[in-house]
């Protein structure tokens, strides 16, 4: 169902015409969310970022608005690794065209580089990295290495 975006009153950043709004990002993770979806200083998208915004739901939250880009399902699921409670709004002509939650994927194929230099996935072999997503860790399905911190830093 298509419905209107609430009026921009009180918002720190203005509405977008077309694109994606990622709301309820864990406070402080907005820049990592951008990194996960491949937005860097050299990409062309117009991006607005608000951090530590008051939120009734979680106290503080971050918001990211990206103009003229709609996220794919696998990009949304990657975000769930660091911000499991985000809601993603696809905006078309200033209206919310679709609203989606994210799902933590069970497995990550070719998304994260194994930090273990001795892992076979870092050797010259015809395979991609494969991680199992567990409650607090990522588990390398080749060498059993566990990533507990800085998941974004290990993304390919």
């Amino acid at each position: 169902m298509i419905r209107s975006v609430p009026p921009p009153e009180g918002l720190l950043i203005s509405p977008i015409k077309n694109g994606t709004v990622i709301d309820h990002i864990t406070s402080g993770e907005a820049l990592n969310v951008l990194k996960i979806i491949g937005i860097t200083g050299t990409t062309t998208e117009s991006v607005s970022v608000a951090t530590n915004v008051s939120s009734g739901k979680t106290g503080k939250k971050d918001i990211v608005k990206i103009e003229n880009r709609e996220l794919r399902k696998e990009e949304m699921d990657r975000i769930a690794l660091i911000a499991p409670h985000v809601s993603i709004n696809i905006i078309r002509e200033f209206k919310v065209f679709a609203k989606r939650g994210v799902e933590r994927p069970k497995f990550l194929l070719g998304v994260v580089r194994c930090p273990n230099p001795g892992c076979i996935t870092n050797a010259h072999e015809p395979i991609s990295s494969r991680f199992e997503v567990l409650p607090n860790v990522l588990h390398c399905m080749y060498c059993d290495w566990l990533i507990t911190t800085d998941i974004t830093g290990h993304m390919i």
Binding site: G118, I120, T121, M141, Y142, D144, W145
Partner: peptide, 13 residues
């Protein structure tokens, strides 16, 4: 037996 961790998993594939 192989020096790289995960080599046997790769082999099984």
């Amino acid at each position: 037996r192989h020096p790289k961790e995960g080599a046997a998993r790769l082999a099984s594939e």
